[in-house]
Amino acid sequence: MSGRGNVYVFPSSWGNVAGEAQLYYIGMSGNNEVLLSPRYPSSPFYVFYYNFERGTIRRVEIQRMDALKHGRIHTFLDHVEDVKLYANV
């Protein structure tokens, strides 16, 4: 066993969807999709899902991120939080 992980190649259309965004691997969803996310806030803020089996890319905009202008973003799989708590920040 060489200790190497799997290597996946994204389709050429990836650049059209993600542009120049610097994305980080978050994990695999229950739908066999890879979740990628930026570490720093941007406007608009997107997370990306790539399904290797179907070869599809989904870009999902997360709205109301303008309150988080500084610092790092921590993205998690299968986590739900009540963001209304942050409305007064």
Rank of each mutant, 00 (worst) to 15 (best):
S37Y: 00
Y50L: 08
A21L: 08
F76H: 07
G55Y: 02
M65R: 04
V89I: 13
Q63F: 12
R58E: 07
N51P: 07
G3S: 12
T75S: 03
Q63V: 13
E61A: 10
E33C: 07
Q63A: 03
V7Y: 10
V9P: 06
Y24G: 00
N16F: 07
N32L: 08
M1G: 12
V9S: 10
V7L: 15
A21H: 05
L23Q: 00
R58L: 05
I57E: 02
Y86I: 11
T56C: 08
R54V: 12
N51C: 11
Y50F: 08
K84V: 04
M65N: 01
P38F: 00
Q22A: 14
P44R: 09
N6F: 09
S29W: 06
S37C: 01
V9N: 14
L77E: 02
S43K: 15
Y86L: 11
H74A: 02
R4W: 12
S37Q: 01
L36N: 01
A67I: 14
R59E: 08
D66H: 12
N88K: 15
H70L: 10
Y25R: 11
M65P: 02
G27Y: 00
S37E: 01
G27T: 02
Y8Q: 11
K84Q: 09
Y49C: 09
K84F: 07
H70E: 14
A18E: 05
S13C: 07
T56G: 04
G55Q: 03
H79N: 13
N16M: 11
N32Q: 12
I73D: 02
N51V: 05
Y50C: 09
I62W: 07
V34D: 01
M65G: 04
F10C: 09
F52S: 12
R54D: 05
Y49P: 06
G30N: 13
H79T: 13
R54Q: 14
S2M: 10
D82H: 05
Y24D: 00
S42Q: 06
A21C: 13
R54H: 14
S13A: 05
R64Q: 13
V89A: 15
L77T: 03
R4G: 07
R4L: 14
F10G: 04
L77F: 02
F76G: 03
R59I: 05
I62P: 04
D78A: 14
S42E: 02
V47Q: 07
I62Y: 09
H79W: 06
S12G: 06
S2F: 06
D82N: 08
L77D: 01
P38H: 02
R72W: 06
S29C: 11
V9I: 15
R39Y: 04
R59N: 09
E20L: 11
Q63M: 11
S29L: 07
P44S: 09
N6D: 09
A21M: 11
Y86H: 12
Y40N: 13
G71E: 01
D66K: 15
V80W: 05
G55H: 01
R4V: 13
H79M: 14
G15Y: 14
I26S: 03
G55M: 05
V89H: 13
P38Q: 02
I26W: 00
G3L: 07
A87H: 14
L35G: 02
I26T: 05
F10V: 14
N16Q: 13
A67K: 09
R64V: 12
D78N: 15
D82Y: 04
R54Y: 08
H74D: 05
